[in-house]
Design a protein around this nucleic acid. Structure first.
Lengths: 216, 216
DNA sequence: ATTATCTATAGATCTATAGATAATGC
DNA sequence: ATTATCTATAGATCTATAGATAATGC
């Protein structure tokens, strides 16, 4: 009966000041990331203060620095953890060369929308922050570029017959249109979060294939 | 020869401090809007200070308040002046009932992309700021809603034959997809501003019609 | 001893206002 | 007299660090 599983597993360190929000049981680092995700997406990154994040996570402002070096570090981690699953899926799909490319592209689109719209917050909106062009986020940008490359590879695989002639410009264009659709749609979703995400994701994937010029 | 057209038309009021950027000749109000457009889109709205805007416009921070009540007023004016031309076009196109709806939808999409990507800055990115949900921007939001309504009306007009059965959910969905494409594409454009905008706008309009399910 | 937290605060902003100033207009 | 600008600044932040404190661990 020592250290019961449910109540308080007697934690080390000075206790938190009360009159802060009740501890959710999640580890503090994670709690900070959740708080940051909500505030960054709802109120905006630059408009969110370190105090707001910390306090929403149930601790005092200074305590945040025990876990993160600052706001930028929070954002970097959110960005990378959001793009990582999409990127992993893209890598896998690119290699499954025995299946038709159009089908694989459809799957990537669908999963991407699900991942970006499925969570409680609109993390995809963070991709578009001006701050993301800063040096601190180079790794995220590289990941996103690789994801875009995955889209392109799959798109390229959908070309058939007469289209096989080299058409780099056209390919880049279709790539941008598809990529733009995915990210745009995820922003639009914000205005109608009640709609079931699964169907929305499939409809978006259908639309992406139609843009790509592949019959569905 | 009094008050020559080119040099300095002898303006009233205390002269500006020098060591500020050279006066461009444009009226100060306009200059502030240009400066704000650049800074808001490149560095972000919340991250841009009133000082930065004023100084880029060639005046001291406090002088800005002679023309605008603050940052929010600048943003409101930028937003409304950006959406206004699109809205006007949409109204006109909706009324031209003698022309095929698909054709009119294409035109609206094309113009929208041109308007949003054509200028020197990516003003469309401002549409997506979290701050825009504030009370101050209600008028802009109303305008944008009306624009979306225009898209919907045109989309609705493209339905033919068997599809004429009432399908509200499907219509809203296609509406969101098309709207999402336009805004998403405009964000993607940011990463490759060298590409000629005219062709890009037409390709986007083509893609929108394909999403809508209308043959091009 | 180690750890997680707290309190307190220096230093650096940023906004918005008050009031002075240097032009032109009449 | 009117206008457009300036300088100066009060008050309100916000970030990041220093150092104290209150738990558990051994």
């Amino acid at each position: 009966m020592t250290g019961g599983t449910d109540d308080g597993p007697r934690r080390v360190g000075r206790p938190r000041a009360d009159q802060l929000r009740p501890a959710s049981g999640r580890p503090p680092r994670e709690e900070l990331l959740y708080a940051a995700a909500e505030l960054f997406t709802v109120k905006g990154y630059a408009a969110t203060t370190t105090r707001a994040v910390a306090e929403r996570a149930g601790m005092r402002q200074a305590t945040m620095y025990h876990y993160f070096g600052g706001k930028e570090e929070l954002l970097a981690e959110l960005l990378e953890s959001t793009v990582a699953p999409s990127l992993e899926l893209a890598r896998r799909l690119v290699q499954e060369t025995d299946r038709p490319a159009g089908r694989r592209l459809w799957e990537l689109c669908r999963s991407d929308v699900l991942l970006l719209c499925g969570g409680p917050y609109n993390l995809g909106a963070l991709y578009l922050l001006p701050e993301v062009s800063g040096a601190r986020f180079a790794r995220f940008r590289r990941m996103r570029q690789e994801l875009r490359g995955g889209y392109r590879e799959l798109l390229d695989g959908t070309r058939v017959g007469a289209e096989l002639a080299d058409d780099r410009a056209g390919l880049v264009l279709r790539n941008d249109l598809v990529f733009g659709l995915i990210e745009g749609v995820m922003l639009i979703h914000r205005s109608d979060p009640a709609r079931p995400v699964a169907a929305f994701a499939e409809a978006t994937a259908d639309a992406a294939l139609r843009i790509a010029g592949v019959g569905v």
